[in-house]
Amino acid sequence: MNLEVKIAGVTFKNPIILASGCCGFGQEYDKFYPMEALGGLSLKGLTPNERQGNPPPRVAETPSGMLNSVGLQNPGIDAFLERELPNLAGRDTVKIANAAGATVEEYAYMAQRLDASPIDMIEANISCPNVKQGGAAFGTDCSMAAQVVTAMRKNTTKPLMVKLSPNVTDIVSIAKSVEDAGADAISLINTLLGMRIDISTRRPVLHQNVGGLSGPAVFPIALRMVWQVAGAVKIPVVGLGGIAKWQDVIEMMIAGAKAVQIGAALFGDPFTPVKILEGIQQWMEQKGISDINDIIGSVQPY
């Protein structure tokens, strides 16, 4: 049975990747099961300098999901390359660096720094909803998104994946813009902007007032966008948003995703990725499917 998928020349032993912002720099969930069980890890979003992130509370429960407003807290690219990345050396899983910046120049700088590192792939984060500058501001405008990708492309020969924001009117036009600018792959969706208010205090639950919605509540939106984008671009698409069980992964892949990322589901059940892999293999066996690649994009739309 083959679970291996190839994205932008990078081989993933299976299509399950942990999503950026949900798995730190890979060490935390390694205490439950070895990271070698996973196709890949998309590591915590990085910026040129250390960022402390937003004041708490940074998280809120929502129906079938959660809001977060972490705000890209990270030690900065130097500390990552010196202190964190070496811990992943020799570990047999695809390491993806998620990179963000406040300006086009910062994105270009991140690409340059990561190009010289042993990272397997770069994921350009033009979709973080929780930062004042940069982030989703670049991911909601076709020309800005293209500028970021062009600038990064110039500075790296590493496979470059671009993570898109769902907080847009037309996801397909953004996807086409980043493809034209030189992206090797697209991942979507980042979180949807949401809000909760405590009715007793009339204060928002999050200190930032608003934050990014993830969890099963967003899955149908993510699936729809993955389907639309996969049908419109030639580069591979990685689907994420609300995946919690193996059936969700199969759905995403039938819609056109070549691989998937798992995020919020980890917080409820750290073993979600392992259980998903078991479920996928049982399903393939039952259905007589020998290669997972055979189901990618096999949706029969009306």
Binding site: G21, C22, C23, G24, E28, Y29, K31, K44, G53, N54, P55, P56, P57, R58, V59, A60, M66, N68, V70, Q73, V205, A264, L266, F267, P270
Partner: peptide, 15 residues
């Protein structure tokens, strides 16, 4: 503090 993962992976429980 309001928390999610409990193991240092998600960084929401800032102090």
């Amino acid at each position: 503090e309001r928390m999610a993962c409990g193991i240092g992976a998600c960084l929401v429980c800032a102090c």
